[in-house]
Design a protein around this nucleic acid. Structure first.
Lengths: 215, 215
DNA sequence: CCGTCCTGCCTTGCATGCAAGCCCTACTTG
DNA sequence: CAAGTAGGGCTTGCATGCAAGGCAGGACGG
């Protein structure tokens, strides 16, 4: 009997993308560093083709920049760019919140509460990875319930750029995102208060824009 | 003496992308039709590599869908998907309007007015291509002035999906976008009335969402 | 006659080879 | 000595070859 293979075969380009993206967001590959497709291909144990497809996506997301026939490198963490991305992602979250809140089930609220608890615990423990993961999970509930695929894709596309700055800020000392704002968001969602939830969402993302500006 | 080459060499993948996208939006390749990279490569006179990169972008934009190892085909025009895209693009336009209006110069207003005149004339003449081009140009002023690259990219990414439906509706009879709404938008911009401009923008995109629903 | 399994073709995914463009260096020349 | 310029190396962009997986059609069994 063979070992069971994954239900959805993971394409090499997707693995390459996730791997490189995480390395950039985590700061393992520093801003300004040039990345060569051949080199990364060898390090990941595959050929240039899937790595190049991953590069294309990362350029799209603003984590890489490329000059034709010349070089590809990790972008600098530029305050203005992060602020722009935050404005876009914030608008997406406001959009999905407006749609999702009236459709939330009790289980969804529960998922958000659980994620926020894990978030608060991780922040207290100083575990950045876990904190950001929990934060993602919390907000993802609304994105998923809204059912808007374009909004979900846009959110996923620009969140890494923002995360990179958040990680850096976190490493420098304090974390901006407060569990308190999350609490207020969850309560508004539980109460079916659309406008209230949208207001809190806007507040959360305004805070992030300020984080970018305090460079 | 040689002919002067373009200042920025156009990459083959970009030409392939633009070419295929336009063909899909124009309906020259019908929804549901399977597209084979080898076939398109031959038709465009280049190899599979750049065509495949174009495919990846078009999948991202929701104009193509692909099943691994199997097929790639043009997506159906699904009302829900168009509505989702319209919600995202609408949110982007509201965002850039809020930022751009206080920064507009007289020349920008003039560009918008000129574009709207061309728009109205094209609608009257029944020239869809020109109408949509003029419409793009009008709204693009605000996108550009806002300076938000992420918002610009997101707008550019999902506009084709919407245009495909608009073209179909146009072919069926009436056009929804009215030059009157554009006039009101321009006047609000000229007056520096941010909230007013945002309100009109929201109204324009609400109309588009209804266009999607009337399927 | 219908359902199932098998087999072969066709597609995409990945690997690799080749060419074009850019950058850096070193040389030449004023 | 400085500035311009030609050449080489190294990168990416594109072309092509190969293999894995899906799907359709047919053969076989019930």
């Amino acid at each position: 009997m063979e070992a069971i293979r994954p239900l959805t075969r993971t394409l090499l380009r997707d693995r390459a993308y996730a791997s490189i993206r995480d390395a950039i967001v985590a700061g393992e590959i520093e801003p300004g560093a040039v990345v060569r497709d051949a080199e990364l291909a060898e390090r990941l144990g595959l050929s240039r083709a899937p790595v190049r497809e991953a590069f294309a996506r990362l350029v799209d997301e603003g984590l890489l920049e490329s000059k034709p026939q010349s070089y590809t490198r990790v972008t600098q963490v530029v305050a203005a760019d992060v602020r722009d991305a935050a404005a876009v992602v914030g608008a997406m979250h406001e959009l999905v919140t407006r749609v999702a809140v009236p459709r939330l089930f009790a289980a969804d609220i529960e998922t958000m509460r659980a994620a926020n608890e894990r978030f608060a615990a991780a922040v207290a423990a100083g575990d950045v990875d876990e904190a950001l993961r929990a934060d993602d999970q919390l907000h993802d509930v609304l994105v998923r319930v809204s059912g808007n695929g374009a909004a979900a894709a846009t959110t996923a596309r620009y969140t890494p750029l923002i995360r990179r700055l958040e990680r850096r800020r976190f490493a420098e000392g304090g974390n901006c995102r407060s569990a308190g704002l999350h609490d207020r968001l969850i309560e508004a969602c539980a109460a079916g208060d659309v406008d209230g939830a949208v207001r809190v969402t806007a507040e959360i993302w305004r805070g992030l824009a300020e984080l970018a500006d305090s460079d």
